[in-house]
């Protein structure tokens, strides 16, 4: 065979370049595969499992699986949607995601993906963890209740900002995000709203202070169109309700 290599995704031919993952090739071809810990600007992490697809009948994370010629990939099947719904439901009960009181509601990637996979109720028993809000920084606040441990802020701060402000501590179910200072307070770091780390959070965990619900309902990022059409919060400018400060 000559020309560009390709694989099929739900029956559609997806061309790819050598070294691309299934996720990268699909997004480049304009086909959405739901994801949370994946951000095209960062090395894939493969931790949230929301991007689970079947590659030649085997369950794999689309964001970490290299594309290969002739692969058959399934994504939008009821079986996979069911699994994704389950993952989302677990994420929602593990933290405290109170959408009606969250200012990111309507422009939250977690919420938008939940809608996309058809998750309407949390299903599992809530953990109701007690996690304090860190408002020690003059311009930003971190609400750990909403953190889904995607580690995008960790990666952004380390790899782009060169500040290494965030880290994950603990293992398994005990794992949680921390601020890398002796006091554990964001205010004690050199964090800035212009940092890449301030622009990647897919939930309402890292927020600009004093803003509140400044975008009216109806005009928020995902109010009119779903995430597969609109794209990720981290890829869209602040002026549109995204997180990017250009």
């Amino acid at each position: 065979m000559s020309g560009e290599p390709s694989f099929t995704l739900d029956g559609q031919q997806i061309p790819f370049q050598e070294g691309q993952t299934v996720m990268q090739a699909a997004l480049e071809a304009g086909v959405y595969i739901p994801h949370l810990c994946f951000n095209p600007e960062f090395t894939p992490h493969g931790s949230c499992r929301v991007c689970l697809v079947k590659v030649n009948n085997r369950m794999q994370a689309a964001c970490t699986t290299p594309a290969a010629g002739g692969q058959t990939v399934q994504s939008e099947t009821e079986e996979l949607r069911e699994i994704r719904r389950g993952i989302l439901q677990m994420l929602f009960v593990e933290g405290n995601h109170v959408c009606p009181a969250c200012e990111k509601s309507g422009a939250c990637q977690l919420q938008a993906v939940a809608y996309y996979v058809g998750m309407l109720a949390p299903h599992f028993k809530h953990f109701y963890p007690r996690r304090p809000v860190d408002a020690s920084h003059p311009d930003a606040v971190i609400d750990f209740n909403r953190c889904i441990m995607c580690e995008l802020c960790v990666r952004a701060s380390r790899d782009v900002d060169g500040k290494n402000i965030f880290a994950v501590e603990g293992r398994g179910i005990q794992a949680h995000l921390v601020v890398n200072t002796p006091s554990g307070q964001l205010g004690a770091t050199g964090f800035s709203l212009h940092d890449k780390a301030a622009q990647v959070c897919p939930t309402g965990s890292i927020l600009t202070k004093h803003r509140g619900y400044d975008i009216p309902i109806g005009q928020r990022l995902y109010d009119r169109k779903p995430i597969n059409v609109v794209g990720d919060v981290a890829q869209l400018p602040d002026s549109q309700g995204g997180r990017r400060h250009d």
Binding site: V98, P100, A101, C102, E103, P132, V133, A135, V141, D143, K209, H210, R211, G212, Y213
Partner: peptide, 14 residues
Amino acid sequence: QGRPYWEVPVAVQR
């Protein structure tokens, strides 16, 4: 208690 003040008007509606 412990929540950001700007969230209160919306949260209190509950």
